[in-house]
Design a protein around this nucleic acid. Structure first.
Lengths: 276, 276
DNA sequence: CCGACCGGTCG
DNA sequence: ACGACCGGTCG
């Protein structure tokens, strides 16, 4: 469908195309999402995570990053009440992405003895890093999701789960991804997986930009710093992008590490294949 | 003076006190700043830097961080046209702080053979890190202001200036300061000064907060992570805060590194004393 | 063109 | 309570 976005005066309205979503899909997503946005008992991160998984199920061939950025983000801005919608989005959408990843993958990973746990509190993050034995080496909160495995000996809990690594989750990268690198290198050095999962959201709004959500990785022959973090420096064990415009890495990179792109909501996807 | 800030419906207006600024001072600052904000030939970073130095000269006993956060920031939001004022502030105010520091201190440092140069472009940053011989070790752009000295041999240019270190400039810290630490440690390890200069801006707006701009360092007996970066880990050679509510470090810290607070626009201030 | 800038939010 | 979340901007 074609889709109008109002940027107010003097910019006016601009059109975006979401080719694998119908007007009816869009209306169905709005009807699902809007009532949750201001519901007093619903945390915004839950509303966004639920709406994302709902939208992606409804439109399994749509670019998930576009559903997030053009559909959910803009519905949220128009409807969030009683607080600054942009800053509320900042605060809640990051954690929503952690929730969405965990909710999506846990049913697919459980028969491999694997489990993702979003770490929202400083305490949870710190306890996880302590179980990994690297709490003293990294800033107190540089891990977003724990990757646990049944029977793993490191950080083993009475419930039978140990820790095999962590995920750094980011909706968009900007300069902020460099924040995660020191902790990531230590995690890898200590034998843990350190994954970067990202929606790789980035479009340029009018009047300069064309609103196409191309992300920030550039292409292998015109590499950005962010791509080099993976392909050359090997700063993460692997990177998973949910923006279908992200250009994946070639199978051979100088670091051996790759950017994988999740092209559809069908399993096994590259993330499940990598872990299982 | 007392000072009203309108947070719109349903929050209403709230009062802030800027005790060492009169209504006439405030009006004079507005008259100076507002025409520059939308002037087509004036870069916003120049407008903000100029207005800050103007305001601080006019009110040398006011908390500079409050002049920045309560006076300039809020005038900018109310008056910036043709673009998103909040995001424009993000983009331009950070560089304005670099400019303001350089413009303020260069006249005071020149007779010591010292010079500050703001590094705005990726190219300038990279060239500076190359002169320091650490370009291959740190992310391409982790330095905001170069500190040069006449006759210094490292990175010596034909103009007679070599490099003795760099400044990481931040209006506010948030989690973003941890970004600067890996590069800072390398700079120090290679014998360079690595300073953190900050306005330490942080207030909590209504309805939760009281708008008092307390910053983010806590106090030595109730230390925040950010304070520990300096006093315990010694991640910067020194930190200079322009928020008079920032609690300075004791003279003895476990790392030997300190947070200094610049209490008035009178020299020599702690920054000049440290460098000269 | 494409990077880094910062602050209200809310758990 | 105090921390980390993200995106329009504009050089």
């Amino acid at each position: 469908m074609q889709f109008s976005i109002d940027f107010g005066s003097p910019l006016g309205t601009y059109t975006v195309d979401i080719p694998n979503t119908t007007q009816q899909d869009y209306d169905t997503i709005e009807a699902y999402f809007i009532p949750k946005i201001n519901a007093p008992k619903v945390k915004s991160r839950d509303a966004i995570a639920d709406a994302f998984l709902f939208a992606w199920s409804l439109c399994p061939n749509e670019n998930p990053s576009d559903l997030w950025h053009h559909v959910l983000y803009r519905i949220y801005l128009r409807n969030k009440q009683g607080t600054n919608p942009e800053q509320s989005w900042v605060r809640t959408s990051g954690e929503a992405f952690e929730l969405a990843l965990s909710q999506k993958y846990n049913p697919l990973l459980s028969n491999h003895g694997l489990k993702l746990t979003p770490l929202f509190s400083k305490k949870d993050k710190k306890e996880t890093l302590e179980r990994m034995g690297i709490s003293h080496l990294v800033g107190s909160s540089k891990i977003d999701i724990a990757i646990e495995k049944q029977g793993e000996s490191r950080g083993l809990l009475p419930n039978g789960y140990g820790i095999i690594g962590g995920i750094h989750a980011k909706v968009s990268l900007a300069e902020r991804v460099s924040d995660d690198i020191p902790a990531s290198r230590i995690m890898m050095q200590y034998g843990f997986l350190s994954l970067l999962s990202t929606l790789d959201v980035k479009s340029f709004p009018p009047p300069r930009g064309d609103l196409i959500n191309r992300g920030e990785f550039g292409s292998p022959d015109n590499s950005s710093d962010k791509r080099r973090y993976i392909e050359e420096h090997g700063d993460f064990s692997a990177c998973f992008s949910y923006n279908t415009r992200t250009v994946p890495s070639p199978q051979i990179t100088s670091s051996g590490k790759q950017i994988y792109v999740v092209f559809s909501n069908i399993t096994p996807d590259p993330f499940v294949q990598f872990l299982a």
